[in-house]
Design a protein around this nucleic acid. Structure first.
Length: 581
DNA sequence: GCCGTTTTCGGCCCGACTGTTTTCAGTCG
């Protein structure tokens, strides 16, 4: 069962509780947990196996037991008991935007059996005849269409590009003095559902009026005095809040979220007789609202540091900020090199896809990025299709070329000779150790037989890491966003070993990988493991993806000291025990 | 059902928009 399905199940339970008129707080607890799971960057099933369910904000003792039952038996008796009093279709209908528990139950009582059936009953006018107002029927009809062409979650580069266009549009609206993209994009969550924006203007209504006229707007969901929601032709939902310029900081804070961060923060503020909202900070005794120009002022009023947006997930950042012990997170500008880069060097029968550019082109781009060092890590020829003799001859040629480039560019950058090799299903490597010993470093990764029992996969990776020639574990979990889940691995075992034996965990910055995942980065950090942020670029323009890997590192609470490729050359040299430099 | 910088009991973020409400319910972020 994946996160989407679990979130949906918990939403169903909240719906059943709502219809049973249960305590609003119990209902809210289920909604909160559902929301947390839907937006979790790690699979809840993985967390369960790692005994880390308690790390999900809003999941307490009771829900942990229910989830345990769910994973073990496939269902939860208590949930089924609650849901059985209502037609199943109710729990489907609540997926339609604008349809909540009450409306869904009313529809079910009118005999609606499915989405298809609902569509028929709206079109035939039956719904209106049976007492629904025409406007509500129209709203449901539009919501239904949306449900059917809903887009999946976007990868960061796509969301970035789209958001930038919208910010540009907003900034051109007369009276707008500032505009920013917020929400999950500002927090750099690995996939983005919808886009949230804030703008500052003395004339919010005019701004909203212009916003809903934006090109590509297919439908206006709401349009108020200071907020608007639209759906674009692509199905993407865009939310905008407009605030007064003198309290824009409060708006930024409010709409950056996460929801859980804000709830925790506001509960805390309440104890200090302060009430936080997008309009500023209100003293609940005097009812006076203090405007907040800069976001940091709001946190200062609460006596805490300002947590960077990437860690505002209610994962301990509020406690750390109160104690003035927030980490000083690694930044893009700290990065001094990239170790995972693929060139088009002819490998005859490469084991996996080669890069598009020459080694020299990669070096030039790295110089352009002001790196101090750069590592080339092509896939070697496939071990099944190439004899060892051929392999040695090809790699010898490649080493010669790299050595030449090393000396030609030595004044500008240090070049390292590496390879990305396969961890075979038994944990051995696709290239003999004698070859690896002649390299500056090697990256090992699982590239085949992705589905394996947890115990076997753990042993497989461990065995590869035990090889003294392996320096870096590439894209450790193997997940591909929107495509493939993480491998089942006992991560604590891997991280403990890695920390002890100086094996580096890669944070692969490729936008559909972003692997190691942020929650596992945080776990590995507890074991004091070291990390490297690499782009895995197969084309020099992809070397710009470094920023996405840095976002993951930041979401995992990493500081520069934890990230090997933010270190200076001397320290890198020492770490990899490179003799020639 | 969750949770702890007044609490292991007794609270639980804050606000907007729509429809059709003449004071509010339902839904959403």
């Amino acid at each position: 069962m994946n996160n989407q399905e679990i979130a949906k199940l918990l939403r169903s339970v909240a719906t059943a509780l709502t219809l049973k008129k249960a305590s609003i707080f119990q209902i809210r607890a289920y909604e909160t947990a559902s929301d947390a799971i839907e937006h979790s960057t790690s699979e809840v099933r993985d967390l369960w196996q790692e005994k880390r369910l308690d790390e999900i904000p809003g999941v307490g003792v009771s829900l942990q037991a229910h989830l345990e039952e769910l994973f073990k038996t496939g269902s939860v008796k208590h949930f089924e008991q609650l849901k059985k009093d209502f037609p199943k279709v109710v729990f489907e209908l609540i997926d339609i935007p604008g349809v909540g528990p009450k409306t869904a139950l009313e529809l079910a009582k009118l005999g609606v059996k499915s989405f298809e059936d609902l569509k028929l009953k709206i079109n035939s006018g039956e719904l209106v005849k049976k007492g629904f107002s025409a406007k509500i029927a129209e709203k449901i009809s539009l919501g239904l269409k949306e449900t059917q062409n809903r887009t999946g979650r976007m990868l960061l580069p796509f969301a970035d590009a789209k958001a930038q266009k919208i910010v540009d549009y907003l900034k051109k609206i007369p009276g707008v003095v500032a505009a920013d993209s917020l929400g999950s994009l500002r927090r750099q969550v690995v996939t983005i559902g919808d886009l949230d924006f804030a703008a500052a203007s003395k004339n919010p209504k005019q701004t909203i009026d212009q916003f809903v006229k934006m090109p590509e707007v297919k439908r206006i969901i709401d349009q108020g005095e200071n907020r608007g929601t639209v759906i674009l032709d692509s199905g993407l939902q865009i939310d905008l809040l407009v605030g007064q310029p003198d309290t824009y900081g409060a708006l930024l804070q409010h709409f950056t979220g996460s929801k859980h961060h804000n709830i925790k923060l506001r509960s805390f503020a309440e104890k200090k007789n302060l009430s936080l909202s997008e309009y500023g900070v209100k003293n609940t005794k005097t009812n006076k609202v203090v405007p907040i120009l800069k976001e940091s002022e709001l946190y200062e009023m609460l006596g805490m540091q300002t947590p960077p947006p990437e860690i505002r997930e209610d994962n301990g950042e509020i406690e750390a900020a109160l104690a003035h012990k927030l980490p000083s997170l690694v930044e893009l500008k700290d990065i001094k090199g990239d170790f995972h880069l693929h060139s088009n060097f002819p490998m005859v029968h490469p084991s996996h896809g080669p890069g598009a550019n020459s080694i020299e082109e990669i070096i030039k781009r790295a110089i352009n990025l002001r790196y101090d060092y750069v590592g080339i890590s092509d896939h070697p020829p496939g071990f099944r299709t190439t004899s060892e003799k051929e392999l040695l001859s090809i790699l010898h040629k490649r080493t010669k070329e790299i050595e030449q480039l090393k000396s030609s560019y030595q004044k500008s950058i240090r070049v390292l000779n590496g390879l990305e090799i396969d961890i075979l299903s038994d944990g051995t490597l696709s290239v003999p150790n004698e070859v690896l010993a002649n390299l500056d470093y090697s990256i090992a990764g699982v590239h085949s037989v992705h589905r394996m029992e947890k115990d076997k996969m753990t042993k497989r990776i461990l065995k590869a890491l035990e090889n003294p020639e392996v320096d870096i574990l590439a894209h450790p979990t193997g997940r591909l966003l929107n495509e493939r889940d993480s491998y089942d691995v006992d991560w604590e075992v891997i991280f403990e070993f890695a920390a002890k034996k100086n094996k580096i965990m890669e944070i692969n910055a490729f936008p559909n990988r972003l692997d190691l995942r942020d929650d596992l980065v945080r776990l590995a950090l507890k074991f004091k493991a070291k990390f490297i942020v690499n782009t895995d670029a197969h084309e020099i323009s992809q070397m710009e993806n470094m920023k996405y890997g840095i976002s993951v590192a930041r979401r995992g609470w990493l500081e520069s000291k934890d990230v090997v490729n933010s270190w200076d050359w001397k320290r890198v040299l020492k770490w990899f025990k490179i003799k020639k430099s």
